[in-house]
Amino acid sequence: MDQDLLYEAYRRMSRIRQFEETTKGLLLNGELYGAFHTSTGQEASIVGSCLALEESDYMVGTHRSHGHPIGKNANIRGLMAELMGRKDGVNQGKGGSMHLSDFSVGSLGETSIVGSGLPVATGAGLGSKMQQNGKVTLCFFGDGASNEGTFHESLNIASIWDLPVVYLCENNGYGELTEWRKVVASDSIAGRAVAYNMPGEIVDGQDFVAVYEAVTRAVQRARAGEGPSLVETRTYRYENHAVGLLNESYREASEIADWRENKDPLNLFRARAGELGLDTSILDTIDAEIAAEVESAVEYGRQSPEPDPEESFTHVFTEPVEIRR
């Protein structure tokens, strides 16, 4: 694989990890507010998928989506300001943790409604086909969303119309607090692809190279007009469903420790550095550069002004009614 690509892969994975570790600290210190769902542990799944795209391609995230726009190369200053609810955020401080979007890098956004991104991505794929613009849409969703009606409806219509969409299920083992095997009748999410006459593939979500190669095949197929694919990455989230959620009795501490110690995507990438022809000292330099970048983003967010109250009535679907005081 191209060395520049591999170094960029590590840069984006490190950026996601450090961004989320920093923002978790800000949340616990009271600088951020609201529900906060991290993707720490899923970096290879995210970056391996996003780097298989062209810069102009589209990406749709989930409620657990700080990492996805970073994987698509969004500027973290705007993301940080958004999490702080500031005017210079990517959505003017109105979206927050579960509603990030950055059209400049093809990140069409995400919402807190599980499975809601699937029809959005399918619509983007339809738009690309009608416009004949050659763009592919990558749709992230979780194992929980695979049980939603939107999953089945979206994959069915995408297959019928040969839409250029790659459906990427990040199976991190749990839908909120429930183990996925207890609520999914099949042995895999990818196995459901056969019902929609499209390829389905399971891949090790902690292995950047494996994810990149699998998603690249799906992207090439979509761009060639051969229709959608379903890829399931087997990955893991280190943190609880949401930061600060008290109940974590649904999984064993030993399980979390095993994934952290033996299956961490950044450590696995580093362990293969020699095999991939990479210099670990350059990886160390990248980590240091990202640390400074994240620190700068925090300061940028803190310095950004808060939106004026009147801005509550902008970027809405209708004109606001007159407010009489």
Rank of each mutant, 00 (worst) to 15 (best):
L155T: 11
F317I: 11
Q92L: 14
F208M: 00
S116Y: 04
G48D: 00
E213G: 09
N267S: 14
A158E: 12
I256H: 03
V316H: 07
A35I: 15
E255Q: 15
L155I: 11
V105M: 08
D2R: 13
M198N: 00
N262T: 10
Y212Q: 04
V47Y: 00
S229A: 13
G25V: 01
I76H: 13
A190Q: 09
S128C: 05
E306A: 09
T111D: 05
Q206A: 13
D88W: 06
K87I: 03
L245D: 15
R64G: 10
G123K: 11
F151M: 10
S101E: 08
V215M: 06
F103S: 14
G173T: 07
A273Y: 06
V215P: 03
H152K: 04
R221D: 04
G134N: 08
R192D: 01
D2I: 04
A214Y: 02
L26Y: 09
N29P: 05
R11N: 11
T235Q: 03
E179W: 10
H241E: 08
T137R: 04
P164D: 13
S128E: 05
I160D: 04
L108N: 02
S45K: 00
L6I: 07
S116W: 06
L126R: 10
I160G: 04
Y33L: 09
F269K: 01
T235N: 07
C50T: 15
N247V: 14
G25Y: 02
S186T: 15
G25W: 02
E322L: 05
F103P: 08
D264S: 09
I113T: 13
H241N: 09
I46S: 01
H68V: 04
T318V: 10
Y250R: 08
S97I: 05
